[in-house]
Design a protein around this nucleic acid. Sequence first.
RNA 1: UCUAGAAC
Length: 300
Amino acid sequence: LDTFFVLLKSLLREQLLKQAEKIQILMIKACSDEAEILKVIEFLNELRSRGFGLFLPVYNTLLIALGKFDMDTVSKNVYYQMVDSGVKPSLLTFNTMVNVLCKKGKVEEAYGFLGLILQADFRPDTFTYTSLILGHCRKCNLDAAFGVFNHMQEEGCLPNSVTYSTLINGLCKEGRIDEALVMLNQMVERDCQPTVYTYTVLLTTLCSLGRVKEAFDLVEDMKNRGCPPNVQTYTTLISGLCRCKKLEDACDLLKEMISNGLVPNTVTFNALINGFCSEGRVDSALDIFNRMEKHSCMPN
RNA sequence: UCUAGAAC
């Protein structure tokens, strides 16, 4: 970060504003944790106090980065600062605010920003509505989620596969797996391709209910639809097999994923270690633990 | 600037 700071100071000294903007964006995207992003904000404030206000793309990049770390309070501060500085938010700005608030379950506040979208004469889009659906699902308010789902279509805004996956996940988390499976069929009928996310959501729930047979049938479906399982999908299935004490099958699946060119991660190994430990097979668990290093996988 | 969804 210090390198970025030095570079930016020289660029601004030379009044190279367009270049400075590009560097500011790179700097924000380089932040890998909350502490770094806070340092960046502090530095950008220093620039502002010296008369170098931030442009819209910089604000949007900053809000997107804050959203990735679920920093809704800081997001709001940055948003208000942006408005105070006379920079007009775009739909992307509002959508980013709606999303961070919905992720944190602050649906009321998210609707405040929806109001601002309408006031600014923008049309909420699929991103906006999908975030609102997510917010309602996080609050276990499926009725409201479906309300948004219907409303967006009345407004001529089509749900996409992310919208469906979000709703399907909401149904699953509420224990309504069979309705979720109906929605999967519905999205296919409506020409909306399920993605690996959609399937993994459903597989997670089927596995957690011990419905492993159905889970593997669904894996066949997804493969047939040209949607190959990824690391998270395999991890879900391994965890499901472990839950049913099918530990050897779980190990076979680990081999299969590796032979498919996938790289198991810490979560994958945790699932296996947990499975063996739950059955008292600590020695096997230790073997797996020791294999993590070979896969350049850090225990957490 | 190009933002929304999943695994232990």
